[in-house]
């Protein structure tokens, strides 16, 4: 069963001649990790921002639980959490205060909020440091907190732009493992965007390769390697991008 269905989603910014996202179509199944990869400016973030209901599509649509992104953005938004690349957190709040505040925007009642916060505390792995002001956090700590925030409400779909950016190798591995566990054990679906091909190869069930706003190839990592006769995803990436530039 698909959690997200994206159909012909397109975005053209005012005063620009070309579509930043052009007829993007893909779907994400329950518990599936779908990754969007592509060069800078290819349209990954534009696509993600549309799905996070931050910017509106020029044409096309996306659906979650039968709710259309363009017609019922509020219902759509309830089912999604979004972790932007290089996102920050409120420096005047403590870590726990941040989880409580963000959780309160999703929770129906106090009991649900407490559940969210407990979940967030456990996932963040920040322990007593959650009682400190975020202003004193390292970049890695902020990223962990934001990741915990993004998944603590058990969304149907967590959208993550460069999920492990700014994290050291050990922290990055922990986060990847956490994402994998949540998708397998909690059936949480993920839409990832990353330039780290190793990460995508490890995490993604399926990959969509986006260049110049269009999805030019998609499939499992294995399928893409075979199609492009490559040993790894980096080679797939380079060949796919070269091919689209020639076209």
């Amino acid at each position: 069963m698909n959690v997200l269905e994206v159909s012909g989603l397109s975005k053209k910014y005012p005063k620009k001649d070309v579509f930043a996202a052009d007829d993007v179509t893909f779907e994400v199944g329950e518990g599936e990790i779908y990754a969007l990869i592509g060069p800078n400016g290819a349209g990954k973030t534009t696509t993600i921002r549309m799905l996070a209901t931050l910017i509106s599509p020029t044409k096309g649509d996306a659906y979650m639980d039968g709710f259309a992104l363009t017609k019922k953005p509020d219902e759509f938004r309830k089912r999604v959490t979004y972790l932007p690349d290089e996102a920050g957190a409120y420096k005047t709040l403590t870590g726990i205060g941040y989880l409580e505040f963000m959780g309160s925007l999703f929770a129906k009642d106090k009991a649900e909020l407490e559940g969210f916060v407990r979940q967030g505390e456990a996932i963040s792995g920040l322990g007593d440091k959650l009682r400190d002001k975020i202003g004193g956090y390292s970049r890695g700590m902020i990223r962990k907190l934001l990741l915990a925030r993004a998944v603590m409400t058990s969304p149907k779909l967590a959208i993550m732009d460069e999920a492990t950016s700014g994290l050291d190798v050990i922290n990055a591995l922990e986060i990847r493992k956490m994402i994998k566990d949540l998708s397998v054990n909690n059936k949480m679906s993920f839409l990832l965007s990353s330039h780290n091909m190793l990460e995508i190869e490890y995490l993604a069930d399926r990959v969509g390769l986006i260049t110049a706003g269009k999805i030019t190839a998609q499939g499992t990592v294995k399928e893409l390697k075979e199609r492009y006769n490559s040993d790894n995803l980096e080679e797939v990436f380079v060949k796919a991008v070269s091919e689209s530039e020639v076209l």
Binding site: A52, T81, Y82, P84, A87, L105, F106
Partner: peptide, 13 residues
């Protein structure tokens, strides 16, 4: 501080 995108992607108008 790049907190606006996160805030506006939550279920509040």
């Amino acid at each position: 501080d790049k907190t606006l995108e996160t805030l506006l992607s939550t279920p509040v108008s």
